[in-house]
Amino acid sequence: MAEDVRLDGDGVVLRQWSERDLAQLVAIFDHEEMAYRLPVAAPFDLAAAEAYLITARRAQEAGHRIYLAITSGDDLARGEVMLNFAGRTIGYAVGPAHRGQGLASRALRLITRYAHSVAGLPTVYLDIEADNAGSAAVARSVGYRPAGGEPAFVEDKGRRYALHRWTHTEPSPPAT
């Protein structure tokens, strides 16, 4: 799974991050809410963006994960989707300046389709905090459903929080 991945559909393009995106990585992730919700450096400056890009490339080269920039027409990165192959989990984030355009739903739909049809993962998961209504709405719009069960507790930057699992199963082909 270390090949370059580029997904195009529904008005979005998911593509590899590159050095030309460093300033945009900072613009997306150097925000109070992003630091609160995501395990990223805070503040997220140019050095953090460079380290993030190196980590993303190494994870992809090792076949563990892919990190893709969410773009729309003009190639400007507006957010990110990530697929963790071993954990079968997907993560997504859209920069605060780019919300309200349906980018997260469209990007999640594309990466979910890729996970099922190309990566061969019949079931994929999202982990969402209970109070993250925006993320839950995105998940529902793409067909994810709460999995139930106990949440996973995580500690990051001195904050302990619960992540609730959501699931998406590859649709069965129609009966013939």
Rank of each mutant, 00 (worst) to 15 (best):
E3V: 03
R6Q: 07
V12Q: 06
R15N: 12
W17K: 06
W17Y: 15
W17N: 08
D21L: 11
Q24T: 11
Q24P: 06
L25F: 05
L25Q: 08
L25W: 01
I28R: 03
M34C: 05
M34T: 08
M34E: 02
A42C: 11
D45T: 04
A49G: 03
E50Q: 15
I54C: 12
T55N: 09
A56N: 02
Q60S: 03
A62V: 04
A62W: 00
G63Y: 09
H64A: 14
L68P: 09
T71Q: 01
D75M: 06
E80G: 03
M82Y: 04
F85Y: 14
A86L: 08
P96T: 09
H98D: 15
A107K: 13
L108I: 08
R109V: 01
Y114K: 07
Y114D: 10
Y114C: 12
V118W: 04
V124W: 03
V124T: 12
Y125L: 09
S135A: 13
A137S: 14
A137T: 03
A137W: 05
R140H: 05
G143S: 03
R145Q: 10
A147K: 08
A147E: 03
G148M: 04
G149N: 13
E150L: 10
V154Y: 14
E155S: 13
D156A: 08
Y161R: 07
T167P: 00
H168C: 13
H168E: 02
S172R: 05
A175L: 15
